[in-house]
Nucleic acid binder design. Structure first.
Lengths: 119, 119
DNA sequence: TCGTCACATCGACATCCATCTATGTCCGGA
DNA sequence: TCCGGACATAGATGGATGTCGATGTGACGA
């Protein structure tokens, strides 16, 4: 059987929705979308996302990401966890290092949801 | 002369930026974009935006919006103010009533910023 | 087996934010 | 001129969130 709504990442729960400008959003739909928006509503997370997305090979090691900020390693780890839980970043451990890769479809769904008219 | 950066609404400050996935976002660019994302990172504001956008004539009276939520009038007023300050909603007072209209270009800019690849 | 490196988790703390009640302002009607 | 309705503002408060230092975990090399 398919996963229940509560088991879905925010990204998976959003992929089905009509654009915001088409019809009034139900309270339930809004609650499903918001976690995804909140995930990118932070300057550090936005830059992390951008860094991973624009990185060579489409993936980035945590060690590279840490160096790009004047923040402690646990803080970066915390933000990466949020982005991963939202479904925007995929996580893969290889040896001692952890690589994050962007989920392009997720960003696309979100963009379509907002743009709506032009989609 | 053109307005200084600090006088711009978040929407105006964002319209020029390259998509998030194209190149690493600078700290300054991220700080400009985030207020716009935060403006829609709330279920009530997301629904308000959707209500106004999908309303007949493309505009909605505050009195209509109040009725759609189980929240106090000042709370709705507060959220509308944030959306207006972000540049996502235009405000017009006609007589006793206040009408809000959506800034479609703003949502489009934001969507393009996120989508990037498909823009 | 031990030490070290890469990353995650924990617990604490300060700040931010959504919401409320109370009050202010502006407009139109009586 | 006064009253009431529509909306905004002010101040207070509880909960969410970003950050930190300390610590845990798991993999690799000596």
């Amino acid at each position: 059987m398919s996963k229940s709504l509560l088991e879905l990442t925010p990204v998976e729960a959003v992929a089905c929705c009509a654009p915001v400008t088409r019809e009034p959003l139900s309270a339930e739909a809004a609650e499903r979308i918001v976690p995804l928006v909140k995930a990118i509503a932070d300057p550090v997370r936005l830059r992390l996302l951008s860094l991973v997305a624009s990185h060579a090979d489409g993936e980035a090691c945590v060690c590279d990401l840490n160096d790009a900020f004047d923040l402690s390693q646990p803080t970066i780890s915390h933000h990466l966890k949020l982005l991963h839980q939202a479904g925007l970043l995929d996580r893969e451990k290889r040896g001692v290092w952890v690589y994050y890769r962007i989920n392009t479809a997720a960003l696309g769904d979100l963009a379509g949801l907002l743009g709506g008219v032009t989609a």
